[in-house]
């Protein structure tokens, strides 16, 4: 590569003086504030009712039984997805880290789908279970996947498995072989070593994976829209629907949803040190 040498002599003094790291943080904060934080806070403002009736009228509506149910469904589906994805993800990561003779290939195959737009992957899952798709052609049934909870969960697992495998694999990979050997020389069998040494030392990866998968699953719009149908809509779909007839209701639901998500993450933070894991990102 050709090297281009840049000299600052041509720059005016003030430019040189004021480009300090603190100024750079300031630029970053300003950018994210104007185009992200302020718009989201503005949504909070829009959720309040300044007309007739109570200030929180939109929230009363947003907490009606039908929307409450969508909220419960959202967290229920997210939890189910997280449990299943982590189970498969942990075993896969364990295999790649300790058993596989071709770890690089297996890891690349996990990473590969991340490059493919998520809408295409959901589309692919749907193609499988369509009446003209291979599953129905072969078995004559879609196994209750189309337009069902199971379809949503399957779609989410397909989309989110890499987010479970990668952090867990990284934490398993960074366990010193000597520690595993030490456990064996101290008399622990393979399963005992997995339980007492490997698993505790991979917890940071498990926590990160839980966080990623749960947050992404809870906020998903496409999985219910493509695989679930209206009876399996989650909060993202309900909000999208509501905004076409009442923006302030949609805004109130967005606040309720995000608030609940924060409470759930806060509770999770109580049992596992989430901020430490996030700091390591």
């Amino acid at each position: 590569m050709r090297t281009i040498t840049v000299s600052s002599a041509a720059l005016p003094r003030p430019v040189r003086r004021f480009v300090s790291p603190r100024v750079l943080i300031g630029i970053g904060l300003l950018w994210l504030s104007v185009f992200f934080v302020v718009p989201v806070v503005y949504l909070l403002f829009e959720s309040l009712n300044f007309g007739d009736g109570s200030l929180l009228a939109n929230y009363e509506q947003a907490l009606q039984a039908v929307y409450r149910q969508a909220l419960y469904r959202t967290f229920g589906y997210a939890l189910l997805t997280t449990v299943l994805t982590l189970l498969l993800g942990y075993l896969t990561a364990y295999y790649i880290a300790f058993k596989s003779s071709r770890p690089f290939l297996l890891l690349t195959l996990v990473l590969l789908p991340l490059w493919v737009a998520i809408i295409i992957r959901f589309f692919g899952v749907r193609l499988f279970f369509l009446s003209s798709g291979p599953v129905q052609q072969l078995f004559g049934t879609d196994f209750g996947i189309m337009n069902s909870r199971n379809g949503v969960i399957l779609g989410l697992m397909s989309a989110l498995l890499p987010f479970a495998v990668l952090p867990i694999y990284n934490s398993l990979q960074s366990i010193d072989d000597e520690l595993i050997h030490a456990s064996r020389t101290l008399g622990a069998g393979q399963f005992q070593t997995l339980r007492s040494v490997i698993f505790p030392l991979s917890l940071s990866g498990v926590i990160a994976a839980t966080l990623f998968v749960f947050i992404l699953a809870a906020g998903s719009f496409l999985a219910p829209a493509i695989m679930g149908g209206p009876s399996n809509f989650m909060m993202a779909n309900v909000i999208e629907e509501a905004q076409s007839y009442s923006v302030s209701l949609a805004a109130a639901m967005a606040v309720v949803f995000t608030g609940s998500l924060l409470i759930v993450i806060g509770a999770f933070n109580h049992v596992a040190n989430v901020s430490e894991v996030l700091g390591d990102l």
Binding site: D176, L179, R184, T185, G189, P200
Partner: peptide, 20 residues
């Protein structure tokens, strides 16, 4: 015989103490 059934004591190069 697997390692854990050999009843040996092993001191590793870098201690290999369990950090947790």
């Amino acid at each position: 015989v697997p390692t854990d059934e050999r009843n040996i004591g092993f001191v590793f190069q870098h201690s290999a103490l369990f950090p947790h």
